[in-house]
Amino acid sequence: MSAKHSSLIEIETPVLRPGSDGQTLFWMQEHAFCVHLNLRGDSSSSVFSEAVGAVTGTAPPEHPNTCVSSEHCRLAWLGPDEWLLIGVHEDFGPAPLEERLAPLHHALTALSGGQTILRVGGENWRNVLASACPFDLHPRVFGEGACAQTVIAYTNVLLMPVEDPDRGEALDIVVRRSFADHLARWLMDAAAEDGFEFLSPVGSP
């Protein structure tokens, strides 16, 4: 079996490139090798919500474009009957959930190898993203507890505002692994003027 590689293996990190005035107003960092599961089912059925809650610690959010988190995972709304489950720990596998949901109408699809998380932040992150994203990122309409699927630089992404424990306010961008390199390079180019720091990835294979 071959070793697992980060989706951004082609980009050598860390990179520190201050802007024209010597400042660094944007940073990004990949959160690699998280557990991603796509979950589908009927959240209006209390049996389904309880079964999901029993394993994940939280019921799937019913309100569009919101996400909830528990100590095990984050659950983001993707559609009226569809959610993305991101495991906080590497050992959060689909087996317990599959076992619990077996008697119910559902679909559980493992996406861990198919997508990755790019966390961005810094003083100017909204301006950097706004140059290629049609979605309104202003904190007045898009704060913690929200999520949104949209496009950045022609690439489909899921956005989730987060609080980074070390660096404060940030945004998680969930992106297909095959587009991650394009997106990261595009963001580096967009942030060149403001100055950016691309940190080494978090997470181990």
Binding site: P64, N65, G79, P80, P134, F135, A148, Q149, T150, V151
Partner: peptide, 17 residues
């Protein structure tokens, strides 16, 4: 550019549709 009101997600840019 049009803004289209998705019945679930609310007003979004035409690029997403």
């Amino acid at each position: 550019m049009l803004q289209i009101e998705c019945p679930w997600c609310g007003a979004r840019d035409q690029e997403e549709f």
